[in-house]
Amino acid sequence: MAEAVHTTMEHPASAHAALQHHFENMEQQREAGTLGMWIFLVTEIMFFGGMFMAYILYRSYNADAFAAASNRLNVTMGFINTIVLICSSLTMALAVYYSQVGKRKMIVVMLILTMMLGTTFLVVKAFEYYDKYEKSEIPGRLFPSRPFNWYAEEEHGKQVTQEPARDAATERNPQAVPTGQEQKPDASFASRAEMFFFIYFAMTGIHALHMVIGIGMLIVLTIMAWRDRFSPEYHSPVELGGLYWHFVDIVWIFLFPLLYLLGAHGISGGH
């Protein structure tokens, strides 16, 4: 950055229009933007890290309840969403590539594709949430939810309320338990299962919020691209947007196995 030192405080007329007044040159501005985004992503990692910490700790405390509760999630939808996000990362990467080579139309196309894939993710997520609502598996006391005691019900073959057909996965519960005994629903187990859903909603909810912010960001980028703001010399907004988008995808890549897959479909109730 030392090679071109301006002596006066105004940029020369030849400077790029997007160069902000306090940067010496485009190179410095791009460097600052990139570093800033990386540091921001580090703070995001720490932010999600706290929740991952809570998840891991409680999983180790309540392995059985978490495994059983995890079984209630729809793996197919989660898997579809994983694929959708991976595809969106690809289109985002292509958008960055086209911005580097300066193909305006392709940038716009790729950004719109990314947005569509992101929206798909959110729609699928909304269906999943709605499904949880239908099954009264929303934790907390704001929504009318049955106590999370389906585990005990299954074991003892009792139906407390009329509920939608069970997932195929939980039907596979291998443990046959002596029937015909009097047993109260296991409140302790239920509250631990509720905890799983709380963490599930907190983590996926905050992730979804990041997706929404990401889509808002993509809209701005698309408009900028449409107005031909980017060029091979100046495309760092697209790059930074790409970094953010990839980060959000990667968080999901961690969330999906942790919440949907880990220990869920084999060991459930395995005693």
Binding site: N62, D64, V177, Q183, D186
Partner: peptide
């Protein structure tokens, strides 16, 4: 259920 003794069923209520 948290720490079940080996060989026993999880039949004890909380």
């Amino acid at each position: 259920r948290a720490k079940l003794v080996m060989g026993f069923e999880p039949i004890m209520p909380t």
